[in-house]
């Protein structure tokens, strides 16, 4: 155990400064989202029509609106903090769903080949040829809006990209001698897929996942904007920005603050993903 701790400490010392910074940003956003009920200055849904569209720093009856207010006089700081939790959990959960579905299908298609490969890959082609947002709109329109449904819809419409990547990588790796050696050792399909292929395709999959993560937040925003996502009075960064778009000339802050948060979150996830990909590759580790 103590050697493990030592190794960990040594590894942590080698973490580049950019990764430390984005980790801090990421952690702050996550913590704020989790602790929203305690850190938000006011109720995010509380309206004050006397304080509509007020700029950051506006004060009214002893209450300071640090990030200003929106079109219904709600405190933007509180809404941004609460909204972060919604955006984050929708994005994380839908990325998890689509990764699980997509990678499994891709590995199965690439490993077993034959009829199952044709079925899966043609399904991928069909899914990719339908605009994702249209598919999501249709599904939500049928199933109705709601947090869990939103996660499922996003997750189940976005898996083809993972499938393509996992499939191509699996095809490539399945022909390498070390997989042949595993077969000769007597390993079954499950062991080969999860012990040998999955660890070797994890890097590219992780890159797709981090790119998709940002896209998920934006898709959620789009659907919420169309009224098919998060239902008011709950808010996400996407829904706040959709509303703010109408007031862009008069009240830039409504779009700006959630937008900056969104940028920071997506950026830090991408940097973290890159770093993590290098970490899971033993070749890039120092000995």
């Amino acid at each position: 155990m103590s050697t493990a701790v030592l190794v960990l400490r040594q590894r942590l010392r080698q973490v580049p400064i950019s990764v430390v910074i984005v980790s801090i940003i990421f952690l702050v956003i996550v913590l704020l989202a989790i602790l929203a009920p305690w850190v938000a200055p006011t109720d995010p849904a509380k309206q004050n029509l006397l304080a509509r569209l007020k700029p950051p720093g506006f004060e009214l009856r002893g209450v300071t609106y640090w990030l200003g207010t929106d079109d219904l006089g709600r405190d933007l700081l509180s809404r941004t903090i609460y909204g972060g939790g919604v955006s984050l959990s929708v994005a994380v959960l839908s990325v998890v769903v689509s990764t699980l579905v997509g990678v499994t299908l891709g590995m199965v298609a690439g490993w077993f080949r034959g009829k199952i490969e044709i079925v899966i890959m043609r399904l991928v082609d069909i899914m990719m040829s339908i605009p994702a947002i249209l598919l999501a709109v249709l599904t939500v329109a049928v199933l109705g809006p709601g947090f869990l449904k939103l996660v499922l819809v996003l997750g189940l419409t976005r898996w083809p990209r993972y499938t393509r990547v996992a499939y191509a990588q699996t095809l490539q790796i399945a022909n390498l001698p070390f997989i042949k050696a595993s077969e000769l050792a007597g390993a079954g399909a499950a062991r080969i897929l999860f012990h040998h292929i999955l660890p070797n395709i994890a890097g590219p999959v992780l890159i797709v996942a981090t790119a998709e993560f940002g896209l998920m937040i934006l898709m959620e925003a789009g659907l919420s904007f169309l009224g098919l996502g998060i239902q008011p009075p709950a808010s996400s960064w996407g829904s706040i920005m959709s509303v703010g778009r109408q007031y862009l000339e008069r009240a830039w802050w409504i779009v700006a603050f959630p937008g900056v948060c969104l940028f920071l979150l997506v950026f830090s996830v991408n940097v973290l993903g890159d770093w993590l990909r290098d970490q899971i590759d033993p070749r890039s580790r120092s000995r």
Binding site: P177, F178, K180, H196, P199, N200, I280, P282, R283
Partner: peptide, 13 residues
């Protein structure tokens, strides 16, 4: 079996 290229016949992970 023993393969030609030892770099490819061991799982890098």
């Amino acid at each position: 079996m023993i393969f030609q290229d030892p770099a490819l016949s061991l799982d890098p992970r």
